[in-house]
Design a protein around this nucleic acid. Structure first.
Lengths: 214, 214
DNA sequence: GAAAACAAAACAACCGTTCGGTTTTTTCTC
DNA sequence: GAGAAAAAACCGAACGGTTGTTTTGTTTTC
């Protein structure tokens, strides 16, 4: 109810009705309306920290960036399964000035450190990673997946980049793996297009879509 | 007031007081509370579409991905200058199910198409861009900058990636330009670190920070 | 002198919370 | 294991205050 009407937009009477309780009884279980909200946020936290959650298994394996596809899929599922909880975050930002979520964001960077720092430094030293900071990369990628699916599924704006989620995710993964700049020397201008294992399929698909519209 | 208390959390009496008007007069100028909200969103739209806005000049030049630093700086300024307007977006998501922002998100992809498609295709054909779709890349980069600064400045969670905004932006730019995977063949493990023009400065800075804490 | 701008009171509905009381469940005693 | 006592669960009315909006009227502007 909060996720659909906001905190102040939801009334104790509505909450009581939806729960099949009386208002008086609701106050027997919760000391105030705000406590209900806080308990819901706490529930969400607990869900996110569950070690059995697929996304946490992906993190625990720390195979980044090899398992970016798995990370994307696991993130999509987390967002899908927690649409209403995720919206509480934005309620907190708006109606409580983000006071409830502040700690979580602070913790996030630390937890990424613990899980990924050592492993990624090893890979970097082994020359398996280029001239970028892999710690930033893993946070950027994780957060991007999360935000992308949040806009798609929670904000009610599917296809907000103009392409399918699968296409967007695939292109994003390719982007952060290989980068925008060409890997081979920019040689003969005509040669570049067909010389790569994966041609610009996304580009072509987009062209067709544009043509249909015009 | 909406951006700090939400829509339903702000009352017509508060709005009237803040505006130095009476409630009756406020209803003379606006037919309802929701119309005030809609007008504010419309104001924000208009601001964003102003051709003189630095970010729109960056877009108009369409130099992506050469001008990523300018894009980041211009985006930071847009967010900084529109903190309260941006929060209205999230109010719309929560309290109006995103009905007011839906159209804008739809338009966004189209506008990117118009500005960037031709130019980026040319560059791609000239071999100046690698095996990724530059159209997706420009949208990913733009949206990432915007979201990053929104969390930093609007959600009240500065340094939410554990590093300074400048560091985060620089690393992100390097990431999408060069990609995570090494550009030269993964040769002698010890050789890789020092063989590049820009050493892993961000990585080292982060290490120091971690040491301080422990 | 008409139109726009403004103000204050009034309206009906609703808000979060409390209170007095009843019903159900649990716990303890024998 | 029956029965009393304590605890927890539950209900609906009531309280004081606030809500968005309307009404009625006055003042200012053109």
């Amino acid at each position: 109810m909060f996720s659909k009407q906001g905190f102040r937009g939801s009334t104790m009477r509505q909450l009581a009705d939806a729960a099949g309780l009386s208002v008086g009884n609701l106050y027997h279980h919760f000391s105030s309306k705000e406590e209900i909200f806080e308990r819901l946020l706490a529930q969400y936290w607990q869900r996110l920290l569950d070690p059995d959650l697929p996304i946490n298994k992906v993190f625990a394996r720390a195979r980044f960036p090899d398992d970016l596809e798995e990370l994307a899929a696991a993130t999509e599922q987390v967002v899908e399964d927690n649409i209403r909880y995720i919206l509480l975050i934005y309620i907190d930002v708006i109606e409580f000035r983000g006071q409830h979520i502040h700690d979580f964001y602070q913790d996030m960077a630390h937890r990424f450190e613990e899980v990924f720092r050592q492993r990624l430094e090893e890979r970097k030293n082994r020359g398996e990673i280029g001239d970028v900071d892999p710690m930033t990369a893993v946070m950027v990628a994780s957060r991007w997946f999360f935000y992308f699916f949040t806009v798609e599924k929670c904000f009610g704006v599917p296809m907000h980049l103009g392409i399918s989620p699968k296409q967007a995710v695939d292109e994003f993964i390719r982007l952060i793996r290989y980068g925008l700049l060409p890997r081979s020397e920019p040689t003969h201008p005509d040669d570049a297009a067909g010389s790569v294992p994966v041609p610009a399929s996304a580009l072509e698909a987009r062209q067709e879509k544009t043509k249909e519209k015009s």
